[in-house]
Design a protein around this nucleic acid. Structure first.
Lengths: 223, 223
DNA sequence: CTATGTGAACAGCTTCACAGCG
DNA sequence: CGCTGTGAAGCTGTTCACATAG
């Protein structure tokens, strides 16, 4: 009964294309900061290490944003891409876990500029609850049991999971139960979540291992 | 003159396969902790959300590690994968930048277990130099100018770049000049490095944007 | 003449399905 | 039998090359 393809004109956008959209946005914003008005697919691709065809095709999946013979208007394209990614409006974000990493994330100023606002911090440890986690706006640390109320009050859909690996799966389930629909996971475990919840994982050890492998390959290549 | 293919049996390993190798290793270690002795490709794939065929093919790119009718011996496979990734021996790692993120990384205990040892920290800020950055082993913060000497002394090839975006490109070049061959980059910029240097980037905003996009797609899908 | 948008060709990755081995 | 390892098939993503628009 399940139709194989969407009826709407989605036409299967490659997942890598969506990832690159974020890269384009970042570079476009950098161009805008330098007062650059126009950019061609070739120029945009060059700084990011991609082919011009790749850039054009990626953007074309989402609409016709370019101008023949001219290229893309930087400001216009920024608006379009932000709207596609849903970062043209601010999203509220909840941070779970106020350890070393958690506090570094609170202090991180990069979220705000890109459409995400950290509105609440929770931690299980009663010693930490009530403390102030500093950052762009000072945030009090709430007990984990407040999660459902916080999610409702601020209509939060995105949560950052920064707790030890041993607690991650259980905390993730609590987050989902509280209404979180997307989780940025820093714990080195494969989270099991319902299919209507998205997870993105950041795993430092894995990145280091990839680099290690590349080093070995490079060494072997040169003999 | 350059032969198109390696003479050895490399036969072009898919990049995604290498990335998954790290996932396999993590899961295998978790199995080992639970005293699990054997595992089949189906079981390993299941917990990671991959097909059994995928797991078998990935592992087969690197050799014949399985046993017909039985599966894979956990301990044996861990050794093999570590050796492939080059994490069967400890690698020395240099951290550049002792801000909030840098200090969180120093405190992070996950590196040690996976074959990476943070052996030195440097920072440009004279105020920070000389301070002790705590962590598994207490490390003094060195001035940036010490980088070449530190890299030589500890034979460091891997560096972690945790400085503000505005300084990242220049600092990356200093790292490369000092002898670093692989960079784990936390600054939200596309680093330009020589072809013999590897870069892996961790960009929180990009992950959040991906999640945001998935949320939008999910909403549209259900109407 | 320049640079986009896009079908068509190509390459790369994943899944299938089964021979072969313990 | 059960499970691996692997050609072959199938699918997804990228590159090519050109018609089209300003």
């Amino acid at each position: 009964m399940q139709p194989r393809k969407r009826i709407t004109k989605v036409e299967s956008i490659p997942l890598p294309a969506v990832r690159r959209l974020s890269l384009y946005l970042r570079q476009l914003e950098s161009f805008a900061d330098q007062n650059r008005k126009m950019v061609s697919s070739r120029q945009l691709g060059e700084v990011l290490g991609l082919s011009d065809a790749q850039v054009r095709k990626d953007l074309a999946y989402f609409g016709q944003f370019g101008h023949s013979g001219i290229g893309y208007r930087v400001a216009e394209l920024i608006q379009r891409v932000r709207s596609i990614l849903g970062t043209d409006r601010m999203s509220s974000v909840l941070l779970v876990g106020a350890g070393n990493l958690g506090r570094a994330l609170v202090a991180f100023r990069g979220f705000q500029k890109r459409g995400f606002e950290l509105v609440a911090v929770v931690d299980k440890d009663p010693q930490k609850v009530g403390q102030v986690a500093d950052g762009p706006n000072r945030l009090k640390i709430h007990p984990a049991s407040d999660m459902p109320a916080l999610v409702r009050r601020y209509t939060i859909r995105v949560g950052i999971l920064a707790v030890p690996a041993s607690a991650a799966q259980q905390v993730a389930e609590e987050m989902v139960a509280a209404g979180i629909r997307a989780v940025l996971n820093f714990a080195p475990v494969a989270l099991k979540v319902p299919p209507n919840v998205s997870v993105a994982s950041v795993d430092l050890a894995i990145h280091l291992e990839q680099l290690s492998f590349e080093l070995i390959s490079a060494n072997q290549a040169e003999g």
